[in-house]
Nucleic acid binder design. Sequence first.
DNA 1: AATAATTACTTGCAATTTGCAAGTAATAAG
DNA 2: CTTATTACTTGCAAATTGCAAGTAATTATT
Lengths: 148, 148
Amino acid sequence: MENLRELFQVMTRRFGLLNKNCCQIGGTEISLVQSHILYELLRREKPSMQQVADTLGMDITTFSRQIQTLVKMELVVKSPLPEDRRVSQLALTTQGKYVAAKIDADMNQYLNEVFSNMSEFEREMVIKSVKLLNEAMSKSTVCCKPLI
Amino acid sequence: MENLRELFQVMTRRFGLLNKNCCQIGGTEISLVQSHILYELLRREKPSMQQVADTLGMDITTFSRQIQTLVKMELVVKSPLPEDRRVSQLALTTQGKYVAAKIDADMNQYLNEVFSNMSEFEREMVIKSVKLLNEAMSKSTVCCKPLI
DNA sequence: AATAATTACTTGCAATTTGCAAGTAATAAG
DNA sequence: CTTATTACTTGCAAATTGCAAGTAATTATT
């Protein structure tokens, strides 16, 4: 049997580095954690704090403080949900949307560069595989439960 | 064109969670960073600090302190290289080897569980794809340069 | 051979990040 | 109307980070 861990350890380490580099947009410096939050907010319609924190597998207190920072940076706005004012709805500001989209574009560019080292056939296979992997992980009982 | 980032963002997030869970062996609690260090030391013959730090893309000062912690935990030993005493050779203690091997085994078990949700054919394809991905990333100019 | 430069690492901060425990305020349940 | 419960926020205290500035060993230069 293959050493699966070996393969994945190296892969995730590389993606970690990729993410590390990706996150300085103009004047604003975005941490890895913040980029994950922005990523979620770009894709969702006014989610609550708890929802996003759960999706990202983050402690709610850590998340709360990260959101405070993003609000100060004027990338995110919080507004109380009218029908339940305990809940804060999260949304990106115009600036926030811009930053999130920019990170997205940068990451896609990096990934395309990576994929340019493959044949069309290989590219298709890898993409299909990552999808499969995501599905398999979402079914797994040992990990990744809070995710999507 | 696919949104590559979407695929990989979710995948890496999941692996992050996987790694988070994996690292408590008996009494000893191992952080994610420490598990990456142990992983490298298990595979290498007496590397220097700088070598491992570079491989992991870590700042040498951060690395130095992490090693100090691992030495205190009696998982790692440092010994000066005879022909150049500025250099510290790193090695796992017996306990360190045990812990590193245990994490390896746990991670492999988790991964096997994930893979059990796939057909034999899919499994082969995914493994081949991850290998391809690793190769492609190692050729990329934008990321992952210090690695392996 | 004496001095300077370089290398391999170590410490001193100071900023950031983390999570648990303990709060507050709003809503739901009894 | 009192008592949960929920959704979040703050108070620590510990851990992690990286830059700047060290030390000590080796190499290069004069």
